[in-house]
Every structure is written in C-alpha cells, then in structure tokens.
C-alpha cells in the first residue's frame, strides 16, 4: 500500500511539469465521457410529456407558442362540422353569430380558445351546448393552398349526448402519420375516431399516432344568467372567414381586416 501511494505521488510529480500534456489528456477524457453519454440508446430514455389533456383550455397552445417558429400570428384554417340539422355559431364581438349552418369554415389563431354554440340538436331542441376549440399546432400546405386543407374538427351526435348528460368530452385531433396510418379508405365527411381506455390521456395517445393539432372540449357548462361574459368566451379572440370557392394564393394572415371578426 505504501508502495502504491509512493508511486502515485511520483507520478503526480511527473505530470506536473507537462501542463500541455495534462490539459490534452483532460480534454480527451472529457470528450470521451461526452461521447459515452451520447451513445446511450434513446430507448433507455423515459418519455416525459409536458402536456396533458386535463390542463386548462389555452395552456397547451400557449406552451406551443413559446417554442417559436411560424406559429404566432398564423391563422390556421379549420372546418367545424356538427350533425345535420344542428346550428354552429362562433363567438364574435361578445356574442354568438346567428348563422344557421351545421358546418363552419374559419381560420383561428394558434394558442387561443374559441367558444362555440351548438343549437337545434335533433331530438333535443331547445338544448344548447357550448364547446370550445383550441388550435395547438398548424399544418404546412404548399404556398397559396392553405384553405384547401383545413383541420377537420367533427362534433358527433354522441359527443353532444355525452355533454348533455353532464360529462366532459375531450377530443384531440391529430395529423396521421402516413407510415402508421390505417389502410382503410376514407370517405368524404368521415374521420377515424376512437375512445381511449379509461385512465389514458387522449393527448398522449394522439401523440403516439401522429401530431396533435387541435383540442375540442364539450361539457355541460352554460353561460350564467347575465349571459356570455368575456371570461366565458375566453376574451372572444379574433378569427377569420375562409373565402368560399377556389382559394387564392394569398397567405392566411390577418392582413384583411374586413374579414377578421373580433
């Protein structure tokens, strides 16, 4: 033992004069440690999701905006469709518009929460459901063709029935990964949807199947006796009307103030 300590002390003396060699050796050892750390397989990492579907409306979109990139200020086109016979209204200027159509096409800001009103539900006339939609990501179609590929947000009859019974329905819309997409052919006005198992987070399940882009929430919450307040409407953020017919090459930005509703 005494011999080993003596040898170590002598070795330290030997290294002391060679400062450049010592620095080089230290640098090499540090680089080797970094390489070994990077060589750990990715499968050993545990995925930690920062978001879950139970976060308050608007929280996920706000986090997404903080990532940077082309998200802030972009109006993402979307189509909101309800069962035939229903009327879908969008909040504008502190109230709901009165368009009596079951499908709406509009462009929404990412990160904002938009309140809707669904009325004239078949077999439940007189009942009103107030869903919310939140765009949490965008898609990137070729320039000038943004309006041809809106995000498809579909409200089913079962969604409305569950909401009218007091339950909270959370539907996460995602872009399917083509390599793992279902091979079945899609028909018009059809979207593949399924329920997650009890206890599973739909946002995490959607993240395994593709890229989540929007969240639809339906519940039994209704405005108070004083009507729809600004808090109930989440500040009534602006949205933009999608022009009908063949879209032009104009990008979906908020340049045209005449078609922006606030």
């Amino acid at each position: 033992m005494v011999y080993l300590l003596r040898r170590l002390r002598v070795a330290m003396r030997v290294f002391r004069p060679l400062r450049c060699e010592r620095l080089a050796a230290t640098f090499v050892l540090c680089q080797m440690a970094i390489c070994l750390t990077m060589a750990v397989p990715s499968s050993a990492q545990v995925v930690h999701y920062r978001h879950n579907s139970e976060m308050p409306p608007g929280a996920i979109g706000t986090w997404q905006l903080q990532r940077g990139g082309p998200l802030p200020g972009y109006f993402q086109p979307a189509t909101i469709s309800a069962p035939d016979g229903c009327a879908v209204s969008l909040a504008t200027a502190g109230t709901f518009d009165d368009l009596q159509v079951h499908s709406r096409r509009a462009a929404f800001l990412i990160g904002q929460v938009y309140r809707l009103k669904v009325t004239q539900i078949p077999l439940h006339e007189g009942v009103e459901v107030f869903p919310t939609i939140e765009i949490i990501d965008r898609i990137y179609p070729p320039a000038g063709r943004e309006f041809e590929f809106p995000i498809q947000i579909r409200i089913t009859s079962d969604d409305l029935r569950q909401a009218m019974q007091g339950r909270l329905v959370t539907r996460v819309i995602y872009v399917e990964d083509p390599r793992s997409a279902l091979p079945a052919a899609e028909r018009p006005n059809q979207q593949y949807a399924f329920d997650v198992r009890k206890g599973d987070d739909p946002l995490q399940v959607a993240d395994t199947l593709g890229r989540p882009v929007a969240i639809l929430r339906l519940g039994a919450r209704v405005p108070g006796p004083q009507g729809a307040t600004a808090r109930f409407l989440f500040g009534c953020p602006v949205w933009m009307v999608i022009p009908e017919g063949r879209p032009t090459k104009r990008a979906a930005n908020a340049e045209d103030s005449r078609k922006v509703h606030q």
Partner: peptide, 15 residues
Amino acid sequence: IYAPRFGSVRSVLGA
C-alpha cells in the same frame, strides 16, 4: 404528394 389526413381520439369523463 401533400395529402394530410386527420384522426381523433376521445375521452369522456363523468360520474
């Protein structure tokens, strides 16, 4: 070819 397709997953919470 640009051809995105959308799907959705749903969860229902309630008593």
